[in-house]
Protein backbone atom coordinates (compact mmCIF):
# COMPACT_ATOMS: atom_id res chain seq x y z
CA UNK A 1 0.00 0.00 0.00
CA UNK A 2 1.37 3.43 -0.82
CA UNK A 3 2.27 5.76 2.02
CA UNK A 4 1.08 9.36 2.00
CA UNK A 5 3.55 11.85 0.59
CA UNK A 6 5.75 13.01 3.46
CA UNK A 7 5.79 9.60 5.13
CA UNK A 8 8.71 7.40 4.19
CA UNK A 9 10.39 4.22 5.25
CA UNK A 10 13.86 5.16 6.42
CA UNK A 11 16.63 3.16 7.96
CA UNK A 12 17.03 3.46 11.75
CA UNK A 13 19.82 1.29 13.17
CA UNK A 14 19.55 -0.97 10.18
CA UNK A 15 15.76 -1.41 10.29
CA UNK A 16 13.28 0.15 7.87
CA UNK A 17 10.85 2.23 9.91
CA UNK A 18 8.21 4.86 9.21
CA UNK A 19 9.39 8.43 9.48
CA UNK A 20 8.24 12.00 8.78
CA UNK A 21 10.24 15.13 8.37
CA UNK A 22 9.73 18.02 10.80
CA UNK A 23 10.92 19.57 14.04
CA UNK A 24 11.70 16.98 16.75
CA UNK A 25 8.81 16.74 19.22
CA UNK A 26 9.24 14.18 21.98
CA UNK A 27 12.79 12.90 22.01
CA UNK A 28 12.31 10.53 19.05
CA UNK A 29 15.37 9.42 17.03
CA UNK A 30 16.09 11.63 14.03
CA UNK A 31 18.22 10.66 11.03
CA UNK A 32 18.94 13.22 8.30
CA UNK A 33 15.98 15.31 9.46
CA UNK A 34 13.61 12.30 9.40
CA UNK A 35 11.83 11.61 12.68
CA UNK A 36 11.15 7.98 13.55
CA UNK A 37 7.41 7.31 13.75
CA UNK A 38 7.19 4.28 16.01
CA UNK A 39 4.21 2.09 15.03
CA UNK A 40 4.37 0.62 18.54
CA UNK A 41 3.52 4.01 20.05
CA UNK A 42 0.99 5.19 17.49
CA UNK A 43 -2.15 3.49 16.26
CA UNK A 44 -2.21 5.47 13.03
CA UNK A 45 1.45 4.55 12.57
CA UNK A 46 0.53 0.89 13.08
CA UNK A 47 -2.26 1.19 10.50
CA UNK A 48 0.03 2.73 7.88
CA UNK A 49 2.78 0.25 8.70
CA UNK A 50 0.30 -2.64 8.55
CA UNK A 51 -0.87 -1.73 5.02
CA UNK A 52 -4.32 -0.29 5.73
CA UNK A 53 -5.73 1.58 2.76
CA UNK A 54 -6.23 4.84 4.65
CA UNK A 55 -6.70 6.94 1.52
CA UNK A 56 -4.19 9.45 2.93
CA UNK A 57 -2.12 11.13 0.21
CA UNK A 58 -0.49 13.96 2.16
CA UNK A 59 -1.53 17.60 2.43
CA UNK A 60 -5.07 16.86 3.71
CA UNK A 61 -6.96 19.03 6.15
CA UNK A 62 -7.29 16.94 9.32
CA UNK A 63 -9.39 16.88 12.45
CA UNK A 64 -7.60 14.75 15.05
CA UNK A 65 -9.64 13.62 18.08
CA UNK A 66 -7.81 12.51 21.23
CA UNK A 67 -4.46 14.14 20.50
CA UNK A 68 -3.04 13.53 24.00
CA UNK A 69 0.54 14.80 24.27
CA UNK A 70 0.81 15.00 20.50
CA UNK A 71 2.97 11.99 19.67
CA UNK A 72 0.95 10.91 16.63
CA UNK A 73 -0.44 14.30 15.72
CA UNK A 74 3.09 15.72 15.46
CA UNK A 75 3.73 13.27 12.60
CA UNK A 76 0.33 13.97 11.05
CA UNK A 77 1.09 17.70 11.02
CA UNK A 78 4.38 16.89 9.26
CA UNK A 79 2.66 15.38 6.21
CA UNK A 80 -0.83 16.94 6.33
CA UNK A 81 -2.15 20.46 5.81
CA UNK A 82 -4.09 22.36 8.49
CA UNK A 83 -4.42 19.97 11.44
CA UNK A 84 -6.94 20.58 14.22
CA UNK A 85 -6.10 18.63 17.38
CA UNK A 86 -8.79 18.08 20.02
CA UNK A 87 -7.82 16.87 23.51
CA UNK A 88 -9.83 17.31 26.69
CA UNK A 89 -7.29 16.60 29.43
CA UNK A 90 -5.29 19.59 30.65
CA UNK A 91 -2.05 17.80 31.45
CA UNK A 92 -1.25 16.25 28.04
CA UNK A 93 -2.35 19.56 26.49
CA UNK A 94 0.84 21.09 27.96
CA UNK A 95 2.98 18.79 25.83
CA UNK A 96 0.70 19.20 22.85
CA UNK A 97 1.19 22.98 23.13
CA UNK A 98 4.94 22.64 22.92
CA UNK A 99 4.52 20.44 19.84
CA UNK A 100 2.21 23.09 18.35
CA UNK A 101 4.68 25.89 19.03
CA UNK A 102 7.03 24.39 16.41
CA UNK A 103 4.32 23.69 13.82
CA UNK A 104 2.43 26.45 12.06
CA UNK A 105 -0.27 24.11 10.78
CA UNK A 106 -1.23 22.56 14.14
CA UNK A 107 -4.18 24.05 16.01
CA UNK A 108 -4.72 22.69 19.55
CA UNK A 109 -8.21 22.73 21.06
CA UNK A 110 -8.82 21.87 24.71
CA UNK A 111 -12.36 20.57 24.51
CA UNK A 112 -14.57 17.49 24.47
CA UNK A 113 -14.79 15.49 21.22
CA UNK A 114 -18.32 14.45 22.21
CA UNK A 115 -19.39 18.09 21.86
CA UNK A 116 -18.47 19.21 18.32
CA UNK A 117 -20.61 22.33 18.71
CA UNK A 118 -17.85 23.65 21.00
CA UNK A 119 -15.34 23.68 18.14
CA UNK A 120 -17.35 23.84 14.88
CA UNK A 121 -16.93 27.65 15.01
CA UNK A 122 -13.17 27.07 14.67
CA UNK A 123 -12.75 23.89 12.62
CA UNK A 124 -13.45 24.04 8.89
CA UNK A 125 -14.80 21.03 6.94
CA UNK A 126 -11.92 18.55 6.72
CA UNK A 127 -10.76 15.74 4.43
CA UNK A 128 -9.98 13.34 7.23
CA UNK A 129 -11.10 12.73 10.80
CA UNK A 130 -8.55 10.71 12.75
CA UNK A 131 -9.84 9.38 16.04
CA UNK A 132 -8.06 7.81 19.01
CA UNK A 133 -10.05 8.78 22.09
CA UNK A 134 -9.97 5.55 24.10
CA UNK A 135 -13.14 6.43 25.95
CA UNK A 136 -16.56 4.88 26.27
CA UNK A 137 -18.83 5.53 23.27
CA UNK A 138 -16.14 5.68 20.57
CA UNK A 139 -18.62 5.02 17.73
CA UNK A 140 -20.82 7.84 19.03
CA UNK A 141 -17.84 10.23 18.93
CA UNK A 142 -17.20 9.30 15.28
CA UNK A 143 -20.88 9.81 14.40
CA UNK A 144 -21.00 13.19 16.17
CA UNK A 145 -17.98 14.34 14.19
CA UNK A 146 -19.29 13.19 10.83
CA UNK A 147 -20.49 16.76 10.27
CA UNK A 148 -16.89 17.81 9.53
CA UNK A 149 -16.54 15.37 6.62
CA UNK A 150 -17.67 15.87 3.04
CA UNK A 151 -18.89 12.90 0.99
CA UNK A 152 -15.32 12.10 -0.09
CA UNK A 153 -14.02 12.38 3.44
CA UNK A 154 -12.44 9.61 5.47
CA UNK A 155 -12.72 8.51 9.03
CA UNK A 156 -9.64 6.71 10.33
CA UNK A 157 -10.31 5.43 13.83
CA UNK A 158 -8.70 3.21 16.43
CA UNK A 159 -11.31 1.57 18.67
CA UNK A 160 -10.11 0.34 22.04
CA UNK A 161 -12.21 -2.56 23.31
CA UNK A 162 -11.35 -2.10 26.97
CA UNK A 163 -12.63 1.46 26.94
CA UNK A 164 -16.09 0.22 25.95
CA UNK A 165 -16.23 -2.71 28.33
CA UNK A 166 -13.21 -4.03 30.19
CA UNK A 167 -14.91 -7.31 31.06
CA UNK A 168 -16.20 -8.41 27.65
CA UNK A 169 -14.31 -10.23 24.96
CA UNK A 170 -12.96 -7.69 22.42
CA UNK A 171 -14.47 -9.34 19.30
CA UNK A 172 -18.16 -8.71 20.13
CA UNK A 173 -17.28 -5.24 21.44
CA UNK A 174 -15.78 -4.44 18.03
CA UNK A 175 -18.82 -5.89 16.25
CA UNK A 176 -21.12 -3.62 18.23
CA UNK A 177 -18.95 -0.58 17.59
CA UNK A 178 -18.78 -1.26 13.84
CA UNK A 179 -22.54 -1.84 13.69
CA UNK A 180 -23.11 1.49 15.39
CA UNK A 181 -20.64 3.22 13.05
CA UNK A 182 -22.58 1.81 10.11
CA UNK A 183 -25.59 3.91 11.06
CA UNK A 184 -23.71 6.87 9.58
CA UNK A 185 -20.67 5.55 7.79
CA UNK A 186 -19.79 3.05 5.13
CA UNK A 187 -17.02 0.97 6.69
CA UNK A 188 -14.31 0.31 4.10
CA UNK A 189 -11.76 -1.66 6.08
CA UNK A 190 -11.23 -3.00 9.58
CA UNK A 191 -8.35 -4.90 11.15
CA UNK A 192 -6.92 -5.67 14.55
CA UNK A 193 -3.80 -3.71 15.48
CA UNK A 194 -2.02 -6.59 17.21
CA UNK A 195 0.72 -7.10 18.12
CA UNK A 196 1.69 -3.47 18.59
CA UNK A 197 -1.65 -2.45 20.15
CA UNK A 198 -3.51 -5.19 21.98
CA UNK A 199 -7.32 -5.21 21.74
CA UNK A 200 -7.53 -2.31 19.31
CA UNK A 201 -9.45 -2.30 16.05
CA UNK A 202 -8.38 -0.06 13.18
CA UNK A 203 -11.26 1.26 11.06
CA UNK A 204 -11.34 3.19 7.78
CA UNK A 205 -14.77 4.50 6.77
CA UNK A 206 -16.46 7.16 4.71
CA UNK A 207 -19.66 9.06 5.43
CA UNK A 208 -22.73 7.31 4.08
CA UNK A 209 -24.43 9.59 1.56
CA UNK A 210 -28.10 10.25 1.77
CA UNK A 211 -28.42 10.40 5.53
CA UNK A 212 -28.46 13.64 7.54
Amino acid sequence: MTLPEGVERRSFEGRERLATSGPPAYGEPVVDGWRLWDAGRSKLGAMLDGGFDTGLRGGETVLYLGAAAGTTVSHVADFAGPTYAVEFAARPMRDLLSVARDRENLFPLLTDARRPETYAHVVEPVDVVIQDVATRGQARVALENRRFLGTDGRLIAAIKARSEDATRDPAPVFEDAVAELETGYEVLETGRLEPSHADHLGVVARPEDGTF
Binding site: E117, A120, H121, V122, E124, P125, V126
Partner: peptide, 9 residues
Amino acid sequence: GTAEEPADW
Protein backbone atom coordinates in the same frame (compact mmCIF):
# COMPACT_ATOMS: atom_id res chain seq x y z
CA GLY B 1 -18.01 30.35 21.00
CA THR B 2 -20.14 27.59 19.49
CA ALA B 3 -21.58 26.61 16.13
CA GLU B 4 -23.74 23.68 15.10
CA GLU B 5 -21.98 23.13 11.78
CA PRO B 6 -18.48 23.88 10.47
CA ALA B 7 -18.04 26.25 7.54
CA ASP B 8 -15.23 27.32 5.27
CA TRP B 9 -13.91 29.66 7.94
